[in-house]
Design a protein around this nucleic acid. Structure first.
Length: 196
DNA sequence: ACATTAAGTGATT
DNA sequence: AATCACTTAATGT
C-alpha cells in the first residue's frame, strides 16, 4: 500500500488475538470490522440449518476475507463460521473506513478485488473436490491441505471432527483412515494423525 | 476402579 | 458411502 494508506490502516485498526480453536465469527452475526490476518491460520466453514457443516478454506497470514467486506456493507449476517486453527493475530478495521479507502486508494481497490478472486478460486476448488472426488481422495487431500496450511505433519483432530468438516460419518472416516494407514501414508494415534 | 470418549468392525442397505 | 449395533482401546476422575 502507499505510505499514506498504510498509516491510516495502522491508525484505524486494532489488534485482536485469538487462541487456537477460538471462534472468530458465528454464522448469523454481523461483522462490524474487517479482519486482516496478520499471523496464524483461520478456518472458514459453511453450516446448514441442521448443524451440518462443510469446510471451505483457510485464511492465512496476509489474507483477508473480502466476503466480510461486502457482507458488512450490506449489513447482511454472515453465511460462514470462522474459527482459529492456530493461535492467530488479526488486524481489525472498522467498516466505516473501508468505503473511503476503496474510492481513494487504487492499491486498496486492487487488494480487495484480488482477495475476492482468491476466495472465489478456493471455493471453486472445494466445489470440484466435493463433486468429483471420492471420499477417500477427499479425505487424503484434506489431510495434505492441512499439512500445507499448518506446515506440520501432525494433525490433531478426531475422526469425528474430520467427518463433520467433510460432511460424512465418523465410521467412514475411520475406515478410510485405516486404509491410508495400511498404505503407509499416515500413522494414527488417539486424537492425532501423522502424515508420512 | 469406573465412566467417558475415541476408534475399530461386521452386517445391512 | 451411510447407518446400525456393537466391541475394544485410551484417557480422565
Amino acid at each position: 500500500f502507499e505510505p499514506r494508506l498504510a498509516q491510516e490502516i495502522a491508525q484505524a485498526g486494532r489488534k485482536r488475538r485469538v487462541k487456537r480453536d477460538q471462534i472468530v465469527m458465528n454464522p448469523g452475526e454481523k461483522a462490524i470490522e474487517m479482519p486482516f490476518v496478520l499471523s496464524g491460520l483461520l478456518r472458514v466453514v459453511r453450516h446448514d440449518s441442521k448443524g451440518k457443516e462443510i469446510f471451505l478454506y483457510y485464511l492465512e497470514g496476509g489474507d483477508t476475507c473480502a466476503m466480510s467486506l461486502t457482507c458488512c456493507m450490506e449489513g447482511k449476517p454472515s453465511e460462514f463460521s470462522v474459527s482459529a486453527e492456530e493461535d492467530s493475530a488479526l488486524w481489525m478495521i472498522p467498516m466505516g473506513y473501508l468505503d473511503g479507502w476503496v474510492q481513494r486508494y487504487r492499491s486498496f481497490r486492487q487488494f480487495v478485488f484480488s482477495s475476492y478472486q482468491a476466495r472465489f478460486d478456493e471455493l471453486l476448488e472445494t466445489i470440484d473436490d466435493v463433486a468429483f472426488l471420492k471420499m477417500d481422495e477427499r479425505l487424503y487431500k484434506y489431510l495434505l491441505d492441512k499439512k500445507q496450511a499448518t506446515g506440520s505433519y501432525v494433525i490433531n483432530r478426531t475422526h469425528e471432527q474430520i467427518a463433520k468438516e467433510l460432511n460424512t460419518s465418523r465410521v467412514v472416516v475411520s475406515r478410510l483412515l485405516k486404509q491410508l494407514e495400511k498404505q503407509e501414508k499416515i500413522e494414527q494415534y488417539r486424537n492425532r494423525i501423522e502424515i508420512l
